[in-house]
């Protein structure tokens, strides 16, 4: 049994803070757990905090891209926050620019981004 990453709910947002060096099975479990929690809670947004991650390789990068795509299909928006500069440089050189993934520098900015989205959505006729 591998460990599972906890998913917290704050209002309309699901928050995941990755604090440990993840093994691949834990990464896959997180992707599945998030999809289920989005539907179960009706959350409109997901924030994935990777501040503590020293590396993001192609496996974790793919999970971030998949989660963004899956959540969009389930009517939720994903924002990845806290990417370190060295991680961004390495990901681009690796060949993964995560085009479909929204990012914010900090948790505060990520939450503000989702809040703006929500307001814009509900304002529509």
């Amino acid at each position: 049994m591998s460990d599972r990453v906890p998913i917290l709910r704050i209002g309309q947002v699901l928050l995941v803070s990755i604090q440990i060096d993840l093994e691949d099975q834990t990464v896959l479990d997180l992707q599945d757990d998030l999809a289920e929690r989005i539907v179960a809670t009706g959350a409109g947004g997901v924030v994935i905090d990777i501040t503590a991650l020293e590396i993001v390789d192609s496996f974790v990068g793919r999970m971030l891209a998949n989660t963004a795509a899956i959540s969009r299909m389930l009517d939720a928006e994903t924002v990845v926050v806290g990417m370190r500069p060295a991680v961004a440089i390495t990901l681009v050189e690796l060949g993964l620019s995560l085009g479909g993934v929204r990012t914010a520098l900090t948790l505060d900015k990520g939450l503000a981004l989702l809040e703006r989205d929500r307001t814009a959505r509900t304002a529509r006729p």
């Binding site: 060096d21 020293e54 590396i55 993001v56 390789d57 192609s58 496996f59 370190r84 500069p85 060295a86 991680v87 440089i89 390495t90 050189e93 690796l94």
Partner: peptide
């Protein structure tokens, strides 16, 4: 494996960006 490589990269004095690149390559 990646933790071992990280320890060596730190001991060797690689820059933070180079450590990150090497550990990421090792992970792949």
């Amino acid at each position: 494996a990646r933790q071992t490589v990280r320890t060596y990269a730190q001991q060797c004095g690689l820059s933070l960006v180079d450590q990150t690149k090497l550990v990421t390559a090792a992970s792949e």
